[in-house]
Structure formats: C-alpha cells, structure tokens
Amino acid sequence: MKYADYIEQIEIESLWSGTKHIVWNLDRNVNILSGINGVGKSTILSKVVKSLAQGGEFPSHLLKGVHLKVQPEDAKWIRFDAIRSFDRPLMNSDTISKLDLSLATELDWQLFQLQRKYLDYQVNIGNRIINALQCGDPDAALQAQKISESKKLFQDMIDDLFKETGKKIIRTENEIRFSQIGETLVPYQLSSGEKQILAILLTVLVEDQKPYVLFMDEPEVSLHFEWQKQLIELVLKLNPNLQLIMTTHSPAVVMNGWMEHVTEVTDITF
C-alpha cells in the first residue's frame, strides 16, 4: 500500500447546497483555517474527514464533490487522525456499560481507546529495541536509546505541562497513570483541559513519527492560554513528519510564529 506523505490541495465542490466552491492549497506542515463563526471552518474539515475511509484509503471512498491532491501523486492511502474539541457527555453509553467502564465524556472514551493504542505502541518499540540490541552492531545501545526517545519526550512534555498541579506520569506503568501527592490518578480524573492536551499529544505519539495528517477542530477550547501558545510546537516536535490541518478562533495558537500559516475561509471560497 502506497501512503501519501501529505495533502497538497483540498477541493470541495457545491458546498452549502451548491452555493460555494472551496480550493485550499496546503503547506507541507502547518495549515490553520480561520474565520468568523458560521463561515464554515468546521464544515470543511468535517467534509474532508468523512470522505476518508476508516483505514485511510481515499480515491474510491471520497464523498461526492471532495477532491484531494496528495504527494506522492500516485498514493492511494493516507494515515490520518481527527481530534474533536469538546468534552461533551456521552450520548450513547451502551458500549461503555457493556465494558463496565466509568467513562462520562467523549474525551474519556477517546482516552480509553488511546490507552489501547499506547499499549500496542509500547509493544512495537519494545520489539524494535530488542532487535536493535540483538543485531550485534557496535552502536546497538545507542540505536535502542534512540528508539525510545519519542516516548520519553512525550512523558517529559506532559510532566512539564502538568507541573503546577504536581501531577507526574508514572513511568513504570504500562498504561497512562499519574501520581499526585501520593495518590494515583487515571486520565479520566483529569480536568477537561488536561484530558484534551493529553489526548492530542498521545494521538501524535502513537503515530510513531510516520507521515500523518492530523485534523483538529478548535483544539484550544479547553486549553490554558500558555498551552494554546505551545500546542503547534509540541505536536511537531513529537512527530516532525506530521501535517497539521486545523481550525481555530484563538490568537494564542498562532502567536508563536504561525500567522503566515493562517488561511481565511473567504480566501479559498469561490
């Protein structure tokens, strides 16, 4: 399967009952869609995400009127993740009840699913570390250390972000858990903002530095001002091969050198 490294252009025909046409030429790394409420930022992102198949196959699954140009041009698949903004109550709790879980919000459910991906990620890097150590190369130990660098970077980032409340990731645990003044906390006990930044960075970590497209719709909603300012930098540091496509209303998100990556909806609408 040939995967795209990034999306070069998004074209949407006949948006809003045929009254508008969207053509958005994208940057390799950071793309920020801005505009007043109701202008259609979230609709554009949602339309693109819905057009992609579950596994990322796109030419035969695109919704009518959605066209993507990718690099390389002959790629048929895209690795992508989509992150929602709001910590809303779960509307359908049947699945949760069957699993005997005490999850109350959509972010809780996302974090539960990410915990499973985090376990798979750790198994994967664990196997790669073993293979590196067994290969017999003189720099085997250095190779093994390099494989685990992203996980350590993620843990250091979260510890730094949460330091004011005294929370620290317990690094000996297989799942994400925190210590705080002698207590052990699970992610579902965090505040909405803490859950949101954890979900974003954990999503990026388990991409394992592969080329990915990350869609985020107003990720700043629950985030502290200082976290908003750091968000793009943190995401790209964890996965330099990522392409970010996001909407925002927050000046803080773009103030650390990202203004030139902002596109107004009206500039891509015809």
Rank of each mutant, 00 (worst) to 15 (best):
E173G: 05
Q110I: 01
V213K: 02
S250H: 05
D120G: 14
N174S: 13
I44Y: 00
E264Y: 11
D217K: 10
M157C: 10
L231E: 10
L153I: 12
Y3V: 04
K167M: 14
G193H: 06
E11P: 00
M255F: 07
Q180C: 12
L198R: 05
Q122A: 07
Q145H: 09
I12Y: 03
W258H: 15
Y6H: 13
M91Q: 14
H249R: 14
H21F: 10
Q9A: 12
Q243P: 03
E218A: 10
I7Q: 01
K151A: 11
Y118L: 08
M1I: 06
N124C: 14
Q209N: 12
A252E: 07
Q155M: 13
I130D: 04
Q145D: 14
V48I: 07
C135K: 13
G126T: 00
E264R: 12
N131K: 11
D87V: 09
K195P: 01
T19E: 13
I78F: 01
K146N: 15
Y3S: 09
K229F: 03
W109S: 09
L214M: 11
L214W: 02
N37Q: 11
E220Q: 07
Q143K: 15
D208A: 13
Q54H: 08
I96Q: 04
M255G: 08
L68H: 06
D137M: 07
L26I: 07
L153W: 03
N29R: 12
V262K: 14
S85L: 05
F225M: 11
K20L: 08
D87S: 14
L223R: 07
L52W: 02
I200L: 11
N131G: 08
Q230G: 08
Q115I: 00
I96P: 04
K20P: 00
G40V: 04
I22T: 01
C135F: 11
E207I: 01
P138V: 06
P72L: 10
T247S: 15
W16T: 10
L63S: 11
A82W: 03
V206G: 03
V186F: 08
K50V: 01
Q196I: 01
P211L: 10
R88N: 10
Q54W: 00
L68Y: 01
Q180D: 10
E164L: 07
A53F: 05
F58S: 02
L119E: 14
T269K: 11
F154V: 03
E13N: 13
E106V: 07
E57A: 12
I129T: 09
D27H: 15
R84P: 00
V48G: 02
I200M: 09
R171M: 06
I176G: 04
L231N: 13
N131W: 00
Q196C: 12
E260A: 15
S150D: 07
M91N: 13
R88A: 13
G257P: 03
A141Q: 13
T248R: 09
N256W: 00
V235C: 15
E149A: 15
G136V: 08
I22D: 04
N37T: 05
D100N: 15
N239A: 05
I245N: 03
P240L: 11
K117M: 03
E164H: 10
I245P: 01
G193N: 09
D108R: 06
Q122K: 13
E220H: 09
Y188E: 15
I181Y: 13
N127Y: 06
Y121T: 01
